[in-house]
Design a protein around this nucleic acid. Structure first.
Lengths: 138, 138
DNA sequence: CCTTGACCCTGTAGCAGCTACAGGGTCCAT
DNA sequence: ATGGACCCTGTAGCTGCTACAGGGTCAAGG
């Protein structure tokens, strides 16, 4: 089993070298062994761990949450309710974001629909942005 | 018409003093006149301008986009098509975000639904996060 | 007149989560 | 031996604020 360079590790997990080093600094992956030439040398479990991180990051978990999930994953006998709770909280967060964006989308679409062309002076869009009447000056 | 202090300007527009100063540094609002005691002194049009900024920020435009909108708003004879275009591009962006979050939401909800409790060792959630089989180690 | 407290000033550093250098060293194939 | 692809550390930048520290100003109350 040949050890992985940081470049291979990165490309196998769809990240970049810089990001891997950043994760190391951020304490998400342990500092790996070094070769004679001071190159980082990774093993299969590092690949696993990084994939786990990528997957959870892609699902929108923050680095703090990822750290927590990693810790939970390491403790095989723990009740998985905490994992469920963290994931569920995150799901609610996503729902909130979707709801917020949906409101915003409707509002913006309304503003845009009111535009009938013409010059800026007659523009309904800018009018909708300026809460009271009159030009936005200087 | 009494001039506004930065504190009043901020509270009237639902921002903070720090944010107003930040907008000045960022070139969104012009540097105002100063009083004898070196206090910033704002006028009615600054209030307008700041409200415009807040409104567009609340609609999710970036500071760069807000800067562009402000510039457009200042040129009364310009065709408002550019405004429409910018707003429409932003709407598409929001739609993309909603779509992305919706995909992600479905995926995460699926992962969570698979959890039947038990210990971490049996946890389907963590299993779903770990792309291949086996513990996420050290 | 003096003090107190609310406000204001500048400048700098911090947050998340990377990304992008600069200025070097290493490794491998030709 | 040389070239190019890779690796190293360290630092600064991005967005859009927010949070100090360490001062100055102003108006009201005693």
């Amino acid at each position: 089993m040949k050890p992985l360079t940081i470049g291979r590790l990165a490309s196998e997990t769809g990240t970049t070298v810089e990001t891997v080093r950043y994760y190391e600094r951020a304490g998400l992956i342990p500092a790996p062994a070094r070769t004679g030439g001071n190159y980082r040398s990774y093993r299969a479990q590092d690949l696993e761990r990084l994939r786990f991180i990528r997957r959870t990051r892609d699902l929108g978990f923050t680095l703090d949450e990822v750290r927590a999930l990693l810790e939970m994953a390491g403790d095989r006998d723990r009740d998985c309710g905490t994992v469920d709770a963290l994931a569920s909280r995150h799901l609610e967060e996503i729902d909130r974001k979707i709801a917020d964006l949906t409101v915003l989308r409707r509002e913006l679409a309304g503003v845009i629909a009111s535009c009938a062309g013409g010059t800026v002076a007659e523009c309904r869009i800018l009018e909708a942005f300026a809460p009271s009447v009159g030009q936005v000056r200087s």
